[in-house]
Amino acid sequence: MAATLTKPAAEAPDPRPVKVDVDVSHRYGTLPVHDGLKFTVRENEFLCLCGPSGCGKTTLLDILAGLLEPTGGRVLVHGEPVNPKRHNISFVFQEPSTLPWLSVRDNVAVGLRIKKRSADDVRSTVDDILGVVNLRGYENYYPHQISGGMKQRVAIARAFATDADVILMDEPFVSLDQPTRERMQAEVLSIWARKKGTVIFVTHNLEEAVFLGDRAIILSAKPARILADVRILLPRPRNTLSPEFTRLRAQFANLLNAAVPAGTGG
């Protein structure tokens, strides 16, 4: 039965072209974080990355974005070394990342302005996306005047405003309450369904991974290796209460528990 819900990615060739080709070994000083971590992500794929805290997920996203040069290996986007100036990438960071001197509107517009889009285009795109994240009416507020969850929504809006073809999201929903979180998950799926783009989504939350992903990669504690790489074949919209869903989540939980060596506590 489980075989109909998931498949090891290796056994289910994906017809879509490769978008991101990863092969990295990174160390901070003498601390090895990734040791020959190797995988590819397809065009328009929604990949969830799960792994114990401190296993190097944020470091990996920084490398994928071209913000950090790995000490070994490389990342290719469309066959060329990743470069934020050439590739259209966006990033929802794990830490708060709104720029405090810009209004909500200008924060959302940051990427569009750097990419030199016309003023009209900026205005209409920002209006549009602010509606999606439910921040209409807050355009002229400054970050210190809105809540932490709202700031995170600003960061999400900023990431989706530029029609990036690689979207990196680092536990974007942790600061949101459950209902908002569920709504944002649904929103991210619907924006993604509309705008497409390759999403690499880091989460601790297995339910979130099973709900969102086309595919999930489970990483070991550092130095991170791939423990499991599975395609999630559950049809969308997924019902988190269905027996199939529950079974899949349990299967993932077992894998992740195996990833955290007993006694280290992650």
Binding site: D62, A65, G66, L67, N83, P84, K85, R86, I89, S90, F91, F93, E95, P96, S97, L99, W101, V110, G111, I114, K115, R158, T162
Partner: peptide, 25 residues
């Protein structure tokens, strides 16, 4: 550093980071 990253990920130049991140800070 996070404020730099926000602009760098969109391909911002050194000058852009200087005028739009460093200077306002």
């Amino acid at each position: 550093p996070i404020h730099r990253k926000v602009t760098l990920v969109y391909g911002a130049s050194k000058v852009y980071v200087l005028t739009h991140v460093v200077l306002p800070t």
